[in-house]
Amino acid sequence: MVMEAKATIESSESKRWVIGITGASGAVYGVTLCRQLLAAGFHPHLVITDAGWRVLKEELGWDAAHRLDCLNNAFEFAVAEGRMTYHPLNDIGASIASGSFRCEGMVVMPCSMGSLAAIAAGASTNLLTRSADVMLKEGRPLLLVPRETPLHAIHLENMLKLSRLGVRLIPAMPAFYNGPQSIEDIVSFMVGKVMDSMGIQHNIYKRWGQPNE
């Protein structure tokens, strides 16, 4: 019985991913990733910066004054039903702020240059950057999806520093060999590339050499 309980706990922990959404353009990327994780049976732990909420409002029409309502509407009541956990940005005592919280890793999608710089500097000024710092210190996967152009030397130096620390950098650079017909196709490609790096099986974009259906 003890062994069965332990196995159940470990299985549950392997289904957790921390997902961060920051103030870079492309909030739909993070939202779509969360939807795909939920559909695949994972439990996302979501944290959104204040600037991230501003972008969600500007790009997706979310009402930042009613955050839980927005999340439940976007994710089919996953928060209310306990299939997703939302952590307020300033809740520095949240579970994901501790190295004792077991999870598979963390994805920040999209990742602003400001958040990327804070992570590179080890500046745990809010729950998102603290969670990223936890991933680094615990040796867990940390994937960042920067969305900025053009890039200057500080941006590039910060990304090089993080890459040398083992962080996976997946810039929001969609491909066109798969013949995208809509914004949704472009978003699906980027989310699929991230899920590839997360080690999660999916079929949400057409791969190179895959025949047309």
Rank of each mutant, 00 (worst) to 15 (best):
P110H: 03
P110S: 12
C111G: 05
C111N: 04
C111Q: 02
S112T: 15
M113C: 10
M113K: 08
G114W: 09
L116E: 01
L116W: 00
A117H: 11
A117D: 15
A117V: 09
A118E: 02
A118L: 09
I119N: 01
I119P: 00
I119A: 05
A120G: 13
A121C: 14
G122F: 14
G122K: 11
A123Y: 14
S124I: 01
L127C: 13
L127D: 02
T129P: 00
R130H: 14
S131K: 00
D133P: 00
V134R: 01
L136Y: 03
K137D: 09
G139T: 11
R140M: 11
R140E: 12
P141I: 06
P141C: 07
L142Q: 02
L143K: 02
L143G: 00
L143N: 01
L144A: 10
L144D: 04
L144R: 05
L144F: 10
V145N: 00
P146L: 01
P146M: 04
P146V: 03
P146W: 00
R147P: 03
E148C: 09
H152G: 07
A153V: 14
I154L: 14
I154E: 08
H155L: 08
L156K: 07
L156W: 08
E157N: 12
E157I: 05
N158F: 05
K161A: 07
K161Y: 05
L162D: 00
S163Y: 06
L165E: 15
L165K: 12
G166R: 15
G166V: 14
V167C: 08
R168F: 04
R168C: 10
L169K: 05
P171G: 07
P171C: 11
A172Y: 06
A172M: 12
M173V: 13
P174S: 09
A175Y: 01
F176I: 15
F176P: 06
Y177K: 12
G179K: 12
P180V: 13
Q181T: 10
Q181E: 15
E184K: 15
I186V: 15
S188M: 10
S188H: 13
S188D: 13
S188A: 14
S188L: 06
F189S: 02
M190D: 04
M190N: 07
V191H: 00
G192Y: 01
K193Y: 07
V194R: 01
V194T: 15
M195K: 04
M195C: 05
M195N: 02
D196W: 03
M198F: 13
I200T: 05
I200L: 15
I200P: 01
I200Q: 05
Q201H: 12
Q201S: 14
Q201N: 12
Q201K: 14
H202I: 06
N203E: 14
K206S: 06
R207D: 12
